[in-house]
Each structure stands twice: as C-alpha cells, then as structure tokens.
Design a protein around this nucleic acid. Sequence first.
DNA 1: AAAAAGCTCAACCGCACGTTA
DNA 2: CTAACGTGCGGTTGAGCTTTT
Length: 317
Amino acid sequence: MKTMEMAARDHREVSSDEESAAAGDLRRGPWTVEEDLLLVNYIAEHGEGRWNALARCAGLKRTGKSCRLRWLNYLRPDLRRGSITAQEQLLILELHSRWGNRWSKIAQHLPGRTDNEIKNYWRTRVQKHARQLNCDVNSQQFKDLMRYLWMPRLLERVHSDAKHDDAPLPLPADDSGAASWPIDNAIKNLVQGDMELSCTTAASSSSVSTDGMQLQLQQLVVSQPPLVTAAGAESAFPGGNHVASYSNNNTGSMCDTLRQPPHAEYPAQFGAETCWSDESLVPGLSGVYADMGLPELGETMWGAGADDLWYTQIMGL
DNA sequence: AAAAAGCTCAACCGCACGTTA
DNA sequence: CTAACGTGCGGTTGAGCTTTT
C-alpha cells in the first residue's frame, strides 16, 4: 500500500488537466461503453481515488475529474435508478430548507442518489414551479408554500403509497434479518437531530415499521418550528388553514405547529369560514383537498398533471 | 408530418480548500 | 511561506429526447 507521500509524488508526475487539455490529447463529451468498462474494471481491481493517476493507469484519455464524475454519478454500483420518490422529494425539500444548495450534504441523506441528480431535480422541477408562481425559489413565500402545502401533500402521497404496499425503495435486510429502510432511518436521524449521521450508518440501525415511518415523516414536518408565524404563512399562502386541519391518523396526535389559529383575513376564494376546531379534522389530506374542490393527487408531486392544476387553482393563476 | 418549444440529465467549468515538497 | 497539484463542490451548458403547436 502506498503512503500519502508516494501518492502525492505520483500526482506530481501527472500533468494538470489544463495542460493535457491544452495539448489536445484528452477526450471530452459522452463516455463510450469501452471507456466505462476500462474505468469499472480498473476500480474493481485497484479501488477508487487518486483520479488523475487512475485515468492514466487505466488507459483512459480523460481527466481525473471526468473519471471521478463518471464513476460517482453514473457507474457506481450502489446508485439508485428511477424517478425521485415522494419520500425522497420530502427529504429534499426539508433538507434544502435547512441547508440551501448544499447538494452533496443533502445527497448523503438520500442513499443511492447523487448530488448532481438532486441538483438537477431541484433546478428542473422545483425552480420551474417557483418561476410559474412568479416568486423567487429562495423567498419566504415559496418556502412557506413548500412547508405548509407541498410537504403535507407529499406526506399524503407517501401515506397513499404505503397503503398500497407500494414502497418504492428496497428493504434490505439488516444483520438481524429484519428489513430496514435507509431513507426511513435517515428521517429518524433528522427527527432526532442527529443530522450528521450518515445513511450508511443509519441503515444498520433498528428497523422501523411502515406505520413508524409514517409517524416519523409526520414528525419530520411538524417537529420543525414554523419558519414564520401562522399569519406569515397565511399571507404567503391562503390555503394554510386547510393544511392545518391535518391530523395524524395513526397516533391521534395533532400536527400542532400546523394548527396555529388564523389571524389574518382569508381571500374570498377560500370563503370566510376557517377550520380550526377539532371537528374539522380529517383523516388525511385527500379529504382536505376534496373539501377545497381540488383534484386528487397527481402521479408525481412536481410532474405535469393534477398537481399543476392544483397549485394553479390555488394561486388563482 | 414537421417545426418549435420545453425538458432532462450527463458532463464540463471555475473556484475553494487541503496537502505536500 | 509558497507554489503546485488533486479533490470536491456548486453552477452552468448543451445534446438528445419528448411534447406541443
């Protein structure tokens, strides 16, 4: 095994990316199957890291940077494929509200997802919606929109998926043979405030039932103090009173932080009546949206379809 | 059917930071 | 201390695909 010093010496023997690029002896653009094989085989034999030396030794006419990116974002065997699930969307929204554009940090809590993937998701889906709503994606208005309506709505989607035995993530067995869910544990860590614990570590902790997951997701949303007062949320988004009606069907506990009494006038489109009494509590958000005359959940939270119609209706666009 | 517009995502770029000689 | 270099991160681009007109 080479020492750090030897590794550093190796590094110095390799010309910089810029020099090589200037010399015109490096490939750029999409990777070929042959290049992928070279990279995968080399890493399987020698491990990853020291990317410039790796590129040279593997016979790849690529920069070390390019090799690293290709491996981390595409070739790594533990990558998850497919669209971002409701749970993952929920986590992304929550973590982004805490950390902003810290994509790599956010990605650490979504096993199998890359920072690039999450960044692309945010830019193409979330920012698109912000643009359509004519507000800045970093504005308080948009953050309130996410926290008070879109996140509870995603929660409902997660609930719906679980009901249909449609858990989109695999349930790898832990040492005890019980199924555990990395995302589930990541959420648990978040709820417990252990933000730095990696998902890899979390995945080996005790398993959590689907009901438990539901509770944790709900706690994830309600455990955070509101970013603004109820009045602020309502001014940002007049439907907040309806979201506040959400109850935890499994445990009977209420989402207290979302049940702030209204102290702002609601636009006429939502009527003068508000629903703050316990009698108005409904089992899930579908009922709430039904009360509002809104469409059922769309195929995806951010995809085209019912949800677009949903927020367009709400925003009076 | 064809052109235009919109969308997705792999890949690149530039910068900051850490390490080493 | 400083220059050189590798690594990692966030921002950006553009080719290819899909949808709309």
